[in-house]
Structures are given as structure tokens and as C-alpha cells.
């Protein structure tokens, strides 16, 4: 419950429009997103593949979109987080903000 409360705050990060969290089996844990099922599958498949590739050094993947609502994937322990960025924000700044948030929260809850 504490973990899910933590993730629900992700929507408050500046630049984050929508998000979905999946576990390492692809199960959707929490989301605030339209068409979350298709996106969750991408988050799980890309997250797993890039995590294996980059081992524990994989930080994030950003998919750069023509409509500027870039889409990002983060590894979070045994979960993967997908985030749709709000238009008008700088992608690597949003990525840094999400990573800072995750690091702080996970330090707090251990």
C-alpha cells in the first residue's frame, strides 16, 4: 500500500502527464493513463530488454515523438515505470525529476 501511495505521487512531478507502473511479469500495478494496456506492454517489454542490456546502469529510455508528448521508461527495482511527458517540457529535465523523485522515495521506504 505504501509503495502504491508513493507511485501515485508521480503524477505531481512537473512535466509528467500520464504514467503506468508494471511489475517484472507485465502486470499493471497502478496507472493514470488512457490506453494503458497497450502502453503497459511496451513499458514491460522495452524495460526488461534494456535493463538486461544496461544491467543496473540502465537509467531510462526516452521515445521522442512528433507531437512532443515524449514517452519515457524507467527501471524501478522489480518494476518498470512508463511516463508520458507533458508538451512544452524538456525531456531530460523531466527524466532527471522523475529519477530524483524515485531515488528520494525509495530511500525513504527502503
Amino acid at each position: 500500500m505504501v509503495l502504491m501511495d508513493c507511485f501515485s505521487d508521480i503524477g505531481r512531478i512537473k512535466g509528467v502527464d500520464q504514467y503506468v507502473l508494471v511489475d517484472n511479469r507485465g502486470n499493471i500495478m497502478i496507472h493514470d493513463m488512457t490506453e494503458f494496456e497497450t502502453v503497459a506492454e511496451v513499458v514491460w517489454s522495452c524495460g526488461r530488454s534494456l535493463s538486461v542490456l544496461g544491467k543496473n546502469k540502465f537509467k531510462y529510455a526516452a521515445f521522442l515523438r512528433k507531437n512532443k508528448n515524449d514517452f519515457l521508461i524507467f527501471p524501478v527495482g522489480k518494476y518498470y515505470l512508463g511516463v508520458v511527458e507533458r508538451k512544452g517540457f524538456v525531456t531530460d529535465e523531466v527524466a532527471d525529476a522523475v529519477m530524483d523523485f524515485l531515488n528520494t522515495r525509495f530511500d525513504e521506504i527502503g
Binding site: G54, F58, K59, A61, A62, L64, K66, N67, F71, A95
Partner: peptide, 18 residues
């Protein structure tokens, strides 16, 4: 290609490793 299945307007990708 997996990303494009959800968002066909993807124009590029940036992956940060370390």
C-alpha cells in the same frame, strides 16, 4: 519498433546507460 506499436509518431529514441 515496440515503442512505435503504441506511438506511431516516434521519431527517435534516447537511452541513458550510466
Amino acid at each position: 519498433t515496440s515503442g512505435q506499436s503504441a506511438y506511431p509518431d516516434i521519431q527517435g529514441m534516447c537511452i541513458r546507460i550510466a
